[in-house]
């Protein structure tokens, strides 16, 4: 209980990095001074679909720079947990703290927070009606445009109100920043840079239907990165891929991990989990049944259920 209060206190203040659990000493990545700041705190999360309770109380702290692999048998709720973190599924109860706000609270504007939580789907979900470049540019441009329009509206009303104010009492107008052409140009050059990084810049004007599964998934990852997220959620990113394409996607994810991105990965790729993850969770029956560092997790599983699971998949 005291620890929970600690989390609350830490997350509600500006100086969230003051909170240190002191238990996690296996963080290798994210050399910045924020490395042990709790980025996402999941508290007592429950989720039911009708009578079926899929998540039965999940508590999880995700720290900056951590790479968490979530494994478990099908139907254990790993995907649901991931989808609850950015509220693609609304939690039945419990809370998800991200940047000091509870995402499970319906009053919170979830769209603002989703911009900082990248998500990659099993089925890629590239926008079929847009080219690769447009896929990547869409969200950054739309959101920047909206911000600009909102400021424009504010300025409009302010300038009217200023007519009635005394000279020294007038409110200054909000600077609009970049023009829409500049926003687009910037998003485009960033998209090209990202595409070049994954070696697919020649596909910029292609439609998703012409791409291979591996290419689609890598572009889906890059599309999420274009929003400059603080954390990336991967929902079985390689499960729908042909075997020969799994490698290219895992390679990209590994590069991302090396760059210090905070990642939560639901996966069946045990080798990848062992190599890249800083912490591995085993979910079973809607709870986190076991969690450990990858080495201990795979070599010395504690619970019989995990031993049984590992013996089947390894």
């Amino acid at each position: 209980m005291t620890q929970e209060n600690n989390i609350d206190a830490a997350l509600s203040t500006e100086n969230a990095s003051a909170f240190k659990s002191g238990q996690e000493d296996f963080i290798q990545q994210g050399a910045s001074d924020k490395s042990d700041e709790v980025l996402i705190a999941v508290k007592d999360l429950k989720k039911s679909f009708g009578d079926n309770e899929v998540l039965k109380g999940i508590n999880l702290n995700i720290k900056n720079g951590e790479k968490i692999a979530v494994i478990g048998p099908s139907g254990c709720g790993k995907s649901t947990l991931l989808r609850c973190i950015n509220c693609m599924e609304d939690p039945s109860s419990g809370s998800i703290f991200f940047e000091g706000e509870d995402l499970a609270d319906m009053k919170v504007d979830i769209n603002v927070h989703r911009q900082k939580i990248g998500m990659v789907f099993q089925q890629f979900n590239l926008f079929n009606n847009l080219t690769v470049l447009q896929n990547i540019m869409l969200a950054p441009v739309v959101i920047a445009k909206k911000k600009r329009n909102k400021n424009k509206r504010i300025n409009f009303f302010r300038s009217i109100a200023n007519l009635f104010r005394k000279k020294d009492n007038r409110k200054p107008l909000v600077p609009l920043g970049k023009s829409i052409a500049e926003i687009k140009a910037e998003a485009s050059s960033r998209a090209h840079a990202l595409l070049t990084r994954i070696g697919l810049d020649d596909k910029a004007d292609a439609y998703p239907a012409t791409l291979s599964g591996g290419q689609k998934q890598r572009i889906a990852i890059v599309r999420a990165l274009a929003m400059e997220p603080k954390v990336m959620l991967f929902d079985e990113p390689t499960s729908a891929l042909d075997p020969e394409m799994v490698g290219e996607v895992l390679d990209l994810m590994k590069k991302l991990a090396d760059d210090g991105m905070t990642m939560v990965i639901v996966t069946h790729e045990m080798g990848f989990a062992r190599e890249v993850a800083t912490r591995v969770l085993f979910m079973d029956g809607g709870v986190i049944a076991e969690e450990n560092t990858p080495d201990k997790f795979f070599t010395a599983p504690a619970s019989p259920r995990l031993k049984d699971f590992l013996s089947k998949v390894l």
């Binding site: 989703r114 089925q123 590239l126 969200a139 739309v142």
Partner: peptide
């Protein structure tokens, strides 16, 4: 999944609807 991907990027329901 198309709508979902849009929403996951932080687009509003209506934007995702109209653009995608």
């Amino acid at each position: 999944g198309q709508l979902e991907a849009g929403r996951a990027l932080g687009l509003t329901f209506w934007t995702a609807m109209i653009k995608i």
